[in-house]
C-alpha cells in the first residue's frame, strides 16, 4: 500500500498538474480503460513511445522487419482493447523481445502510451459517407462486375484482392483512388509476371511470391506455377494493375455508393 502510494506520487510529479484531477482513477489494467486520453496525454504517450518503443516498433509505429516488432497502427494481434494494450506494455510478452516497461513507471504513464497507440488507429464506425452501401452492393455485383475478380465472404473471383474486410484497413479516400486510378499504388502481390520456363512455355500470372532464388505465380485460370530462377529463360514484370479504372465508367454518386459499400465490409463490432 505504501509502495503504491509512492509510485502514484512519482507519476503525478512526472505528468504534471493535469493529473491531479485524476487521483483515484485507474491504476491497474483490471480497470475498464484509459481515462488518460486527453490531447495532452496522447502527446505525452507519443513522447514516451518515441523514446522507449520506437527503436523496435519504428518511429511511425509501423513495426520493423529487422527487429520483428509488429505494426501498431492497424489491428493488433495480441490485444483488442485498451486494457489488453496496457497489459502488454506493463508486462511485456513472455519469451519474446517485447519486454515490460520499467516496473517503476507509473500506471498513468502506461495509460498515456496506450492512448497514443489507440490514437494511431481510428474508428471506422465514426466515419460518415455520402454513398449508399446497398446501392453500392448492387453496383459491385452488376454494373461494376467487381465480383468476377474480387471475393467477398467466400463469393467471387480470384483475380483481385479479397475484399471481405477491406473497410478495416483502407480509408474511404484510398478506396476511391483504388477504383478510379488502380495503377497508382499496385502492391507487388498484384504485379503481373511473364515467365518463360525451362519448358520454353511463357506463362503470365500474378506474383504470388518471389525471393532471391525462386518465384511463384497464379495464371488467369488459377493454376499455380513455381519456378527456380536459375533455370528460367526470362522474366518480365508488369507493375501495373490488371483492374480497369472506373473513372468515367460510373457517375460520381455511383462511385460514392461503391465506396460506401466497400467501406462497410468490416467484421462486426469493428
Amino acid at each position: 500500500m505504501h509502495l503504491q502510494a509512492s509510485i502514484l506520487w512519482k507519476g503525478l510529479f512526472s505528468i504534471g498538474a493535469l493529473s491531479l484531477i485524476l487521483v483515484g482513477l485507474p491504476s491497474s489494467a483490471e480497470d475498464a480503460g484509459t481515462l488518460y486520453n486527453t490531447t495532452y496525454d496522447v502527446l505525452q504517450g507519443e513522447r514516451y513511445f518515441e523514446r522507449q518503443c520506437s527503436r523496435c516498433h519504428g518511429f511511425d509505429a509501423k513495426g520493423n522487419d529487422e527487429t520483428g516488432a509488429p505494426d501498431l497502427t492497424g489491428r493488433l494481434s495480441r490485444a483488442n482493447n485498451p486494457v489488453g494494450i496496457f497489459n502488454i506494455v506493463r508486462n511485456g510478452v513472455p519469451n519474446t523481445a517485447m519486454l515490460p516497461v520499467d516496473a517503476d513507471l507509473p500506471d498513468a504513464q502506461v495509460w498515456q502510451v496506450v492512448s497514443y497507440i489507440e490514437s494511431l488507429r481510428y474508428d471506422p464506425a465514426s466515419v460518415e459517407l455520402d454513398g449508399n452501401p446497398d446501392a453500392g452492393l448492387a453496383l459491385f455485383l452488376n454494373n461494376g462486375d467487381c465480383a468476377s475478380c474480387h471475393m467477398v465472404n467466400g463469393q467471387g473471383g480470384r483475380l483481385g484482392p479479397d475484399l471481405s474486410r477491406v473497410g478495416e484497413s483502407t480509408r474511404p479516400e484510398d478506396l476511391m483512388t483504388a477504383i478510379t486510378n488502380p495503377h497508382e499504388d499496385v502492391a507487388p502481390r498484384w504485379w503481373t509476371l511473364e515467365i518463360t520456363g525451362p519448358d520454353g512455355v511463357t506463362r503470365s500470372g500474378f506474383r504470388m511470391g518471389e525471393d532471391s532464388f525462386s518465384v511463384r505465380i497464379m495464371d488467369n485460370d488459377s493454376n499455380l506455377w513455381s519456378y527456380q530462377k536459375n533455370n528460367i529463360d526470362s522474366i518480365e514484370r508488369i507493375e501495373r494493375s490488371t483492374m480497369p479504372s472506373y473513372d468515367g465508367a460510373m457517375s460520381e454518386s455511383e462511385l460514392d455508393d461503391l465506396v460506401a459499400y466497400l467501406f462497410s465490409l468490416r467484421r462486426e463490432g469493428n
Partner: peptide
C-alpha cells in the same frame, strides 16, 4: 528525425529515430 531528450540513468537516450517511407521490400 531529431528529438530533445534529457538523460536519465537507465532510460533510453537516443534523441530521435528513423522511418522508412517505402516497404522494406
Amino acid at each position: 528525425f531529431k528529438r530533445d531528450e534529457d538523460y536519465e540513468e537507465g532510460e533510453r537516450y537516443t534523441g530521435g529515430g528513423g522511418r522508412y517511407d517505402q516497404p522494406i521490400d
